[in-house]
């Protein structure tokens, strides 16, 4: 039913998205799909990494660890951005079409970045509105 599942992650706040990750892995096993972990990386250093390049390395190793641990096929995609908080949706949509995912499993607010954004808008809501593929939002 699904060939590739994209999971937006924030390496700063992995612990806050246990359920999302678990669900993605189970779906991947069930449908024999690959999982693509996606991150939008700021140019400016942040807690997760000092540069987009370092972050890409970290996400790569995170993806292959997850793959080995759960016996699924994984990959990673990093989209650099000059203004993460604003460009999050757009960059994730780009990532989605670049990695060719046909399902997105995401936390209702991307932890660390967007879960505090609820004063303005929910990122997941915006993403769902604009996405061309199915989106599973985990609360």
């Amino acid at each position: 039913m699904f060939k590739k599942i994209m999971v937006p992650v924030d390496l700063e706040h992995l612990e806050k998205m246990e359920r999302t990750r678990q669900l993605a892995v189970e779906l991947a096993r069930q449908y024999g799909a690959a999982v693509c972990y996606a991150t939008v990386a700021g140019r400016v250093p942040n807690r997760a990494a000092s540069s987009p390049e370092v972050l890409a390395e970290k996400l790569d190793s995170f993806a292959s660890e997850e793959g080995q641990r759960h016996g699924i096929q994984t990959e990673a995609i990093v989209k650099p951005s000059t203004d993460v908080i604003i460009e999050l949706d757009r960059k994730l949509l780009e990532a989605c079409s670049e990695c060719g995912a046909d399902l997105v499993v995401m936390a209702s607010h991307i932890p660390g970045v967007a879960d505090r954004l609820h004063l303005i808008s929910s990122n997941a809501a915006d993403f769902v509105r604009k996405s061309k593929v199915s989106v599973l939002v985990v609360r």
């Binding site: 700021g42 400016v44 942040n46 807690r47 203004d83 993460v84 908080i85 604003i86 954004l117």
Partner: peptide, 14 residues
């Protein structure tokens, strides 16, 4: 905003 959030540039838009 960047200075008052300790150098973070991905602090909430609000």
């Amino acid at each position: 905003d960047s200075i008052t959030s300790g150098g973070k540039t991905n602090a909430p838009k609000s």
